[in-house]
Design a protein around this nucleic acid. Structure first.
Length: 453
RNA sequence: GGCCCUAUCGUCUAACGGUUAGGACGGAGGCUUCUCAAGCCUUAAAUCCGGGUUCGAUUCCCGGUAGGGUCACCA
């Protein structure tokens, strides 16, 4: 089997989104699983629109996703080669210099300019597409298309063909929006005597309105997902699943899984809408798989400064809080939301609240609540410091709570410990806070209730 | 409009021409310690339409329809 060479050829004229990187993922997987070569080629021949910051973002994104490449090229640096091919085409009569009216917006002087046009043979060309089968197009209506602005500045079609030729690209994996460009490029290939690569035109990733994904439609740069707290493994997994599936019911696939199971010929033909809800689910699955140490570091780094310090100063407490946070988030970015919503602070600082909150909805009676909390205090005091865990706490209180009504006991207790309507259960809270703090907070609550009645 | 591509639940998708059309996300309902979350269970929800071919079409063919892409001296 010939050595497979694929490439990802983005132009650095903006921030690339999920659709762009999905083609990179497919191209990468296809090359890697065939022991082939994966090339990154920055197509920056448009000097006006290409920007270094966008190129940097592409490099950054690929690195984050773990799509390492074997060769790096910048199309602008290959101008000499492009010119060589351009000259060849003109010399051999495949292209010609065309004198024509300057564009209306190109200024008053210099009314006439020359461009290089490819002499269209007006034939039918067909090409093999791994995903769609054979496609045949009549090139007649393409006319004599422009392949260079002038002798020194070849354009897209020529540059692509020349580069793929020189770099030995065997498989062109790209978006479906390039199908219409393919016949032109094949015409140039034939004129140049270049081999015709196999094509794989992937369906587009769509915005919710089913049109091509774009920045205008709210498409995010892939690095934005990193900032929002998505894990690269999750994004890679989700991207791979967009338009492809392993044929089993497995949905969580690591890079190794993808490498062994990916099959580009099984790629979907229709476009797919990017669904962040599902991405969130995939991300949560990966969050659950994260090694503890890494999870701690990730969550800690997303906490507001004061809570981060509290966490660093109380590592044991923080370790107990992490599973609680994990249950409540799908992305790391949600850690901050949780903290800002006050659902982390009470583990470190005594909550501030009104007596009213301590009263259970079915039983608005301060005196009764004091009675419940007194009994709870008595029961908890019987537990030794070393035996103060979720199980023993529950064991100590369960019988009493069931006897007088669970809500009657558990609600005031939970509220005394958290100061919130919503929180983890009181046993877990007490365990994390420890006996001393638990009793102190209960005493404070009782005090508040007495003043209230 | 020309050319090209596509068509299964809301979304991502599975189904050698024969299945009660399956799974996942999301939704709804329920269970599990008072609340929240997580987890578990249950459930609603789809083959674009019309013709063929066939004993039998989601599947093959044709035609509609719909959607998308593309029609630059951008890539």
């Amino acid at each position: 089997m010939t050595n497979i060479v694929t490439r990802f050829a983005p132009s650095p004229t903006g921030l690339l989104h999920a659709g762009n990187y999905r083609t990179a993922v497919f191209s990468y997987l296809f090359a890697r699983q065939n022991n082939g070569k994966f090339i990154l080629r920055i197509e920056d021949t448009d000097k006006e629109r290409s920007k270094k910051e966008y190129e940097d973002n592409i490099l950054d994104s690929l690195k984050w996703l773990g799509l390492n490449y074997d060769e790096f090229h910048r199309q602008s640096e290959r101008a000499p080669e492009h010119k060589k091919y351009l000259k060849y085409l003109i010399d051999k009569g495949f292209a010609y210099v065309s004198q024509e009216e300057a564009l209306a917006d190109s200024g008053a002087k210099d009314r006439r300019r020359e461009v290089i046009r490819f002499k269209n043979p007006n034939i039918k060309v067909s090409f093999k597409d791994l995903i769609r089968g054979d496609i045949e197009v009549d090139t007649t209506d393409l006319k004599d298309f422009v392949i260079a602005k002038d002798l020194d500045t070849p354009l897209f079609h020529l540059a692509v063909v020349a580069d793929d030729f020189d770099m030995g690209v065997t498989h062109v994996v790209r978006g479906e929006d390039h199908i219409s460009n393919t016949p032109r490029q094949i015409l140039i290939q034939r004129a140049l005597g270049a081999p015709e690569p196999v094509y794989a035109h992937l369906p587009l990733i769509l915005a919710p309105d089913r049109t091509k994904l774009s920045k205008r439609k709210g498409a995010l740069a892939i690095t934005e997902y990193r900032e929002r707290g998505y894990l690269p493994e999750a994004v890679l997994n989700y991207l791979a699943l967009l338009g492809w599936n392993p044929g089993t019911e497995q949905e969580i696939l690591t890079k190794d899984d993808l490498l062994s199971q990916f099959d580009i010929s099984k790629a979907q033909k229709g476009g797919a809408i990017f669904n962040e809800e599902k991405l969130r689910w995939v991300n949560k699955e990966y969050l659950k798989l994260l090694p503890l140490e890494k999870l701690h570091a990730e969550i800690s780094s997303r906490l507001p400064e004061d809570l981060r310090h509290s966490a660093e100063n109380n590592p044991d407490t923080f370790a107990k809080i992490v599973p609680i946070i994990l249950d409540r988030i799908s992305t790391l970015g949600e850690v901050l939301l949780l903290a800002d919503g006050g659902e982390v602070g009470y583990f470190f600082n005594d909550p501030v609240y009104d007596a009213e909150g301590l009263l259970w909805k079915d039983e608005k009676d301060s005196k009764l609540a004091v009675t419940r909390l007194s009994k709870v205090t008595d029961l908890l005091k019987e537990l030794s410091d070393g035996n103060f865990n979720t199980e023993t706490i529950k064991g100590a209180l369960w019988e009493y709570a069931t006897e007088v009504g669970r809500g009657s006991v558990l609600w005031p207790l939970r509220y005394a410990l958290s100061g919130r309507d919503k929180s983890p259960d009181p046993f877990t809270l007490a365990m994390i806070l420890g006996k001393e703090t638990t009793l102190r907070r209960i005493a404070y609550a009782q005090n508040l209730l007495e003043k209230n009645s």
